[in-house]
Amino acid sequence: MTLHIVNQSPYSGCALSDCLDAIAEGDALILIEDGVYAAAGQHGLPEKQTFCLTADANARGVSIANSVEGIDEARWVALCTQHNPIVSWFK
């Protein structure tokens, strides 16, 4: 299954909504950089397999919703080994 990576705030562009339009059942999603602003909740995130880089959320003062799992870089690496392909959504 695919791992989607989103790095843009849901308030500044379409990267997240474009990703959600193209996400398939069983895919995983990780929010990084400004993408973590979506991790506070809402935004139609999948109920399962949605992750967020804790360091990026902490850096910005974003609290991560219960439905989103905060992870470190090592876990991100593990997700990359467990999923294929890896698709980045940016700008």
Binding site: I32, A74, W76, V77
Partner: peptide, 25 residues
């Protein structure tokens, strides 16, 4: 794709690269 000190992409790539190497990849 990101220029340094302009967007965060390069810095994130560095963090990811270090985590990859630490995980033995």
């Amino acid at each position: 794709y990101g220029a340094p000190h302009s967007s965060e992409g390069a810095a994130t790539a560095l963090r990811f690269a270090r985590a990859l190497l630490q995980s033995g990849h």
